[in-house]
Every structure is written in structure tokens, then in C-alpha cells.
Computed example of a mutant assay.
Amino acid sequence: MQWRKRFRDYLISLRRGLRVLAAPVKGDNGRGGLFIHPYLGYGSRDRVFLMGRVFHQPGFGSSMQEDRLKRDLVDLLRRLWRKPIVGARVRVRYKDTTTVVETDRHGFFRVDMTLGTMPSDVTWHSVELSLDKPVDERATTTGEFFTPTHAATYGVISDIDDTVVYTGVANTAKMLWRLFALGSDSRVIFPGVPELYQGFYQGRSGEDGNPLVYVSRAPWSIYQVLVAMFQLHRIPNGPILILREWGMKRGSLLPRRARDHKLDAIRHVLDLYDSMSFVLVGDSGQHDPETYTRILSENPGRILAIYIRDVSHDPERSEAIVNLAREAGVDCEVISTTDSADMAEHAAKQGLILEQALEAVRRV
């Protein structure tokens, strides 16, 4: 009987994973053709930034709408066979503001638009996207972007890999297996992360609605998996910036380093929210401490705290990380630890999160 239960759980997990992977192509109901896939964006009172992709996907299997398993299998095949559209012109409209952007050689586009009419004081807004070239009225879709309300008191920029999730985020199959098959024993999310990030989102009053922006070195193909993972574990929703395509359209024949892309991404967020202070969260395994210290020196007084998840298990590296801010001559604490509770305790002492949030992290 035990093997039957495991087999049944395995099949359920496969179907859940299949549905997540097939999700990006479901908007056309099997008809095929051109498709715009926007990713979550972020904005301020006068600007909005978002990315997306335009591709052509084959149309077949539309008669299988009633059979969810077959429909998901067909949609997964259509996703594998879709082709990016190079040089497509995407029209982006928010209220009375319109701009047109062009896709790169991988079909990706980037929108950085100055707004004529300010967004209302809510967190999520809709933006309309359509194709000017090639013209296809059926490709029209809606994107979303986040803006902090008047209640927000600070923002959070967090790495994902080895900071929110354990190593292996770039391995789609491994991530899906951990996410859906292993349940609470999956070791996908570091303990205490959902509670800590909810504390950041709720902020000093419990109702701040502080913006959280996530950055990752994973490929765009795993974007939907990350979104599903955040929803499953109740991590606050926010734009996920994939660094692999952050340096696109730079006209350089040589690829830029991922840490340069991260610097660009963080600088862009800080520029967009130029009157807001930030908390930075990363890990010790790559270059987050050095990158964050550089951001700290470029933005004196704006970085409230830097939290580094210590995954290197190297005492010398840990000590060097703690000394970084001191060496930079900037008054900001760098907390290096393996435990989310240590981050939460410091954040509570600094008045960044409530005591209730700290207790929630401790209970994990």
C-alpha cells in the first residue's frame, strides 16, 4: 500500500509540474500564432519598467480542452517548439501614455517608460501590450507592474539563488521535483524566509506594503517555476529580474559578467525609487557582499541594512564580509549568518519589522 501512495503522489507531482511548465503558452487556447509573454514589472509615480518576450508557437490540439492532462502535454510541446520573433515592435499603453519597443535577437523586449498620468495609490496596475509589427490583433495581452503606495517606508532587493532557495534553482527538473514531490521535506526554501519576507513587506506598521524586488541568475525558462514556488510558500509577490538577459542590447560582442548585470539591475531600482531607502539581501557564495558594498558606497544613507546568508562555511570569508562596510567607511551593518532568525532579530531591533514577524520566524 505504501508504494501505491508514493506512486500516486508521484503522478500528482508530475501533473502539477507539467501544468506549471505549460502555463506560459495557455493564453491562446491552442490556436497558435504570435504571442506576447510579459513578466511582472515595477514602477513609481512617474515611470514603469517591465520585460517580456514575443514568440510564435504552433497551434494544434485545440480539441483537447476537456482533457487537462493531454492539454498540458500538448501545451508543453508547443512551448518547446515556439520560436522567438526578432525585431517585433511591441506597443505598450498605460492610460494616456504609449511607447513602442523592439525585441532583440532572442525575442525579448524591455520597457522603461515615463508616465503621463500617475498610477492610483494601489500596489498592482495593468498595462496593455499589442503588436505593431508584425500586426496580429490576437496577440494583444495585459501585463502587470507594481508601485509602492504612500504607506511604503522602504524597499527590499533580494537575490534568489542560495538566498531564498537552496542551490539548484537553475535545474528545472530538480526544482519541480523538490517543489511538488517532496512537500515539506523538499528543502526548496530556506527556513524562515517566507515569514521574514512577509515581515519586510508588512514593514514597521504591519500594513506598509513595502516593495520587494528579486534578482536571479536562473534562465527565463524557470521563471514560471519561481512564480509557482513563491505562491506555494507564500513569499510576497514581486518582480523577478533575470540577470542573464539584463545586459541585452548593449552592442557588445562579449558577454558581461552576471555581477555587472546585478549592479545594473540594483542601480536601476534605486534610480526608479530615488527617494526610498532599501534593505539588501544576498548570499556569500558569489559576489553579493562585494556588489552590495559597492552599492552602499554609491548611495550613502540609503541602505538600511545588508543581510548575507552564509553558505560558504568559511570563517575567513564570513569575517571578511562583516568587515566590508567598515572598510568602505559607510555606517551600515552587514549581517552574515546561516539563520533567517538572526536576520529577523537584527531587523526587529532596527525597527524594520514587527515583533510578531520576528516571532513567526523563530517558530519555524
Rank of each mutant, 00 (worst) to 15 (best):
T114W: 02
L115A: 10
T117N: 07
M118V: 15
S120Q: 15
D121R: 01
T123W: 10
W124D: 09
W124M: 11
W124E: 11
W124P: 01
W124Q: 06
W124C: 01
H125T: 11
H125R: 10
H125M: 09
H125P: 09
S126D: 15
S126N: 13
V127K: 04
V127C: 05
V127W: 03
E128F: 04
E128I: 07
L131M: 03
L131Q: 01
D132F: 01
D132W: 00
D132Q: 11
K133L: 14
E137D: 15
E137H: 06
R138K: 14
A139S: 05
A139N: 02
T140M: 03
T140E: 07
T140F: 00
T141V: 07
T142L: 09
T142M: 09
T142S: 11
T142N: 07
G143M: 09
G143V: 09
E144R: 13
E144L: 13
E144P: 00
F146K: 10
T147P: 10
T147Y: 11
T147N: 14
T147Q: 14
T149Y: 07
A151F: 12
A152W: 06
T153A: 14
T153W: 00
T153Y: 00
Y154F: 14
G155D: 04
G155W: 01
V156K: 01
V156A: 05
I157V: 15
I157L: 12
I157H: 06
S158D: 04
D159V: 06
D159S: 10
D159M: 06
D159K: 04
I160G: 10
D161P: 02
D161N: 05
D162A: 09
T163I: 04
T163G: 08
T163L: 06
T163S: 12
V165Q: 04
T167W: 13
T167Y: 15
V169H: 05
A170K: 13
N171E: 11
N171F: 03
T172M: 09
A173E: 15
K174S: 12
K174T: 10
K174H: 09
K174Q: 12
K174I: 02
M175C: 04
M175N: 00
L176P: 07
W177L: 13
F180S: 08
F180A: 08
A181E: 14
L182A: 08
S184C: 02
S184D: 12
S184Y: 05
D185K: 07
D185E: 11
D185C: 00
D185G: 10
S186L: 01
S186G: 15
R187G: 09
V188W: 02
V188P: 04
F190D: 09
P191I: 00
G192W: 00
G192M: 02
G192D: 06
